[in-house]
Amino acid sequence: MKATPLERIAILLAALAIAAVLLFPLYWIFLTSVMPTSALLSRNPPLLPDPSLVSLDAYRALFARKPMLTWILNSATVTLATIALTLAVSAMAGYSLSRYRTLGQQAAGFALLVSKMLPPALIVIPFFILFSFAGLIETKLGLVLANAASAVPFTTWMLKGFFDAIPRELEQAAMIDGCGELEAAWRIALPIARPGLAAGAAYVAIVTWADLLFARTLMSRPENWLVTVGLQSFMGEYLVDWASLTAAAIVSVFPVMVLFLLLEPFLVKGMAQGATAN
């Protein structure tokens, strides 16, 4: 169906209007975070900001009163380590599944199914028990292992899809030129699968950064909290300070948002593959 230029503009405008409505919650917490409390506690809050009232006080107060920076660094450390571990492990497994016939084929499908069905609220119970015995409670390593193990089945499947799209002949040509099998995988296939690695990294980042359940249960000291746990602790307070809370929400959502908007095309491809492959 070829649309006329006028129709295309109309579709664009309609789509933008819908996007504006859908993104209103984010707009609203952003607006709240830059408004003084007096303007917030209004019976009839204006939908558009009064530019003269805009202030960053809530952000200043947030960083002054709460260990926000520590929480963000904790989240970043756990997320980056989880990405590294998950990608390393699932790139190898995904390559193996794509190139060799092994018993891994069925095992991987089974693992994917189990990981889709396993309630996090259930699996966190044995994590808590095992981590207590292994001394992994209150450690970032424990969280990284928990998150990586939950993500690996899906990212492996996703990366297998990306490797499947690379013709085998490329590696075979390299092997004729004297490359070993693993060297060909490393030097030829892996660089071409870079969009897949980007998609996998974005997926793991979004899921790990958002994790509340594992982080809350396996880390109880405030200096070990991740940013999600910190945010949730604000809400338990007697009087919720909405300006600080929304400022904290904006700060914590900013990194994933940037990552998402940059890597969205890869992610969409990978997610669609991962969701249709089986």
Partner: peptide, 8 residues
């Protein structure tokens, strides 16, 4: 993240 959705 779900927590941010909850706050909003």
């Amino acid at each position: 993240p779900g927590v941010v959705v909850a706050i909003a």
